[in-house]
Amino acid sequence: MWQDTRSKIVSASKAAEAVSQAVSQGKKVVFTNGCFDILHAGHVRYLGEARNLGDLLILGLNSDNSVKRQNKAPDRPINNQENRAEVISALAAVDYVIIFDEDTPARLIELIRPGVLVKGGDWPVHKIVGADTVKAAGGEVHSIPLVTGLSTTNVLARIRESQEE
């Protein structure tokens, strides 16, 4: 039976409450963030590996405005933040999704105080936003290797190439 997972899309304060409760039960909280515009197998594997590093995975999702400010491409994001949040919330690995409008997740990381901070392998640990905050609190920071050839940029390039033919 299908289950509506939109209840996993929460405010930052609601996520902080869930994290506090989880930590009080001795659970390890993992945090990651990103755009997750066109979901692909690389995203699914990455989020599964991130979730395996703890008991609860909180995902900070860049808002549409935040993505546009990153200058990924003039037409990005392809999917709006509500649709991206709904799709990503449907993954079993993800416990909560928070849409954030800032350029970085620094404020969220300070509020959530995860025990583990994760980004994809294109981010060296020393450049991961919030790494200092998490490490200072005794937490771990990981850069999970990317799956070669699987990226939203590559998917969009293949789509654009096929339209030109």
Rank of each mutant, 00 (worst) to 15 (best):
W2G: 13
W2A: 14
Q3P: 04
Q3H: 14
D4K: 06
D4M: 06
D4G: 03
D4P: 00
T5W: 09
R6T: 15
S7Q: 14
K8R: 15
I9Q: 13
S11D: 08
A12C: 10
A12S: 13
S13T: 14
E17T: 04
A18W: 02
A18G: 03
V19T: 01
V19Q: 00
V19P: 00
V19R: 01
V19S: 07
Q21G: 02
A22E: 05
V23L: 04
S24F: 00
Q25K: 13
V29I: 08
V30D: 01
F31H: 02
T32A: 04
N33A: 06
F36T: 01
F36V: 07
D37C: 05
A41Q: 12
G42T: 03
G42L: 07
V44L: 10
L47W: 05
L47V: 11
A50C: 09
R51A: 15
L53C: 12
L53Y: 08
G54C: 11
G54I: 03
D55I: 05
D55G: 05
I58R: 12
I58A: 02
I58G: 05
G60P: 06
N62Y: 11
S63Y: 08
D64I: 01
D64R: 07
S66D: 11
V67M: 09
R69P: 00
Q70S: 13
Q70M: 15
N71R: 13
K72W: 04
P74I: 07
D75N: 12
R76F: 01
P77L: 08
P77V: 06
I78K: 04
N79A: 08
N79K: 00
N79V: 01
N80C: 10
E82Y: 09
E82G: 03
E82N: 09
E86V: 07
E86F: 02
V87G: 12
I88W: 00
A90M: 10
L91R: 11
L91M: 14
A93T: 09
V94M: 14
V94G: 13
D95N: 15
V97A: 11
I98E: 01
F100P: 03
D101G: 14
D103K: 13
D103Q: 13
D103L: 12
I109C: 02
E110S: 14
I112C: 04
I112D: 04
R113C: 06
